[in-house]
């Protein structure tokens, strides 16, 4: 695990011998590796489909797509338990899919349908599934960070074994509540895993122009919270860091902070014309550092799957998304007579 920012060159991807060694050290089964690949393919297809649906005029509101960041979502999900709590940020589709959300209900929500997770009240930015301890995405940058203090506190009070995973972006780390919350989770030794998904831009603001001292994760030192900064486009490295963090937290030692350096391919939201970053930069990440491409190469080289299987899994993932769109499109709109519902419990 490196503490410097992942450069993602061919050298950094490493030989498949090194990959084999790490996988063995981490005791990752072939099934779990294939599962990671399937998750990443599913997220990628969801995001490209979302973009396609938007282009086709089928999406009413905004969306924040995570294509390019799939390794972070997949790596986290393998390290945690299904009943661990998740507090997510606005670019959250990938994390929800990786946590095992029902993709039909996600897609229905994305299209604003009554069958969606939130009965069409939330849309892309607020998907939540309280049945599976997915406490939802947040439209206020950093809004979920302090809520993790309360979730962690309740878990401690209720003497439960679950932990709270709270994911936010590099932009959110500059909100005041970030510091309030870091102090309190450390003070009370709460079972909270803070994950800063650093995709280099807060909307258009480059992280180098927004953060006085990098990496962001080193701020955890100020609160005595152990931290790591990893290559977020290397799914095995992400898993490795998350596994260490989760073991630390579950053993009762308090919070942990992981920063994962990654990159988003699409703009911030639907209005983004990518005026703030060179096309070459986007192409470089796509061609040379893509998390799925890198991982596929390893899986093939290490003969965990062959080319045909890789294509088959990818095609199955695509089918899941196509079916979800069919489900969502066939679902009814919320009835206007229900407008005033859900304001008060």
């Amino acid at each position: 695990m490196s503490k410097d920012k992942g450069k993602g060159s061919e050298k950094d991807i490493g030989s498949h011998k090194l990959f084999d060694k790490r996988v063995k050290q981490l005791k990752m089964s072939d099934d779990s590796l294939i599962g990671l690949y399937r998750t990443m393919c599913t997220v990628r297809h969801f995001e490209y489909m979302a973009d396609k649906l938007y282009a086709a005029g089928k999406v009413h509101g905004t969306m924040h797509l995570s294509a390019g960041q799939e390794a972070v979502a997949a790596g986290i999900s393998l390290a945690v338990q299904p009943d661990d709590y998740l507090i997510n940020h606005h670019r959250g589709h990938g994390h929800f899919i990786a946590k095992g959300a029902d993709i039909n209900l996600m897609m229905a929500e994305f299209l604003g349908k009554d069958a969606g997770y939130n009965h069409g009240r939330g849309g892309s930015m607020h998907i939540a599934d309280f049945q599976s301890n997915n406490l939802g995405a947040n439209g206020i940058v950093g809004g979920g960070i302090p809520q993790a203090v309360g979730v962690g506190l309740a878990l401690k009070m209720q003497k439960r074994k679950e932990i709270c995973v709270c994911i936010f972006g590099d932009g959110a780390a500059n909100e005041g509540v970030f510091h309030e919350a870091m102090n309190m989770v450390a003070l009370w030794k709460l079972p909270v895993l803070y994950i800063c998904e650093n995709n280099k831009y807060g909307m258009s603001m480059d992280v180098d122009r927004a953060v006085a001292k990098l990496p962001i994760a080193q701020r955890a030192d100020a609160y005595g919270i152990p931290w790591a900064c990893v290559d977020g486009n290397d799914v095995v490295e992400v898993y490795d860091a998350m596994k260490t963090a989760v073991e630390h937290i579950r053993s009762g030692k308090g919070p942990y902070f992981v920063e994962a350096i990654t990159y988003r391919y699409f703009g911030h939201s639907k209005s983004d014309r990518n005026l703030y970053r060179p096309k070459e930069e986007i192409e470089d990440w796509k061609q040379n550092r893509d998390p799925i491409m890198r991982f596929t190469k390893h899986l093939l080289q290490s003969e965990i799957i062959d080319e045909g299987q890789a294509q088959e899994i990818n095609a199955q993932a695509e089918q899941v998304i196509i079916k979800a769109v069919e489900f969502a499109e066939a679902s009814p709109e919320p009835d206007v007579s229900t407008l005033m519902e859900y304001v008060y419990a």
Binding site: Q147, G150, V151, A154, N183
Partner: peptide
């Protein structure tokens, strides 16, 4: 007793309430 962090005091209440406290 909490530190002087009003936003996170309320947020902590929210998080705990979501878990049934």
């Amino acid at each position: 007793e909490t530190p002087i962090s009003e936003a996170t005091i309320v947020a902590t209440a929210i998080g705990a309430a979501l878990l049934g406290m």
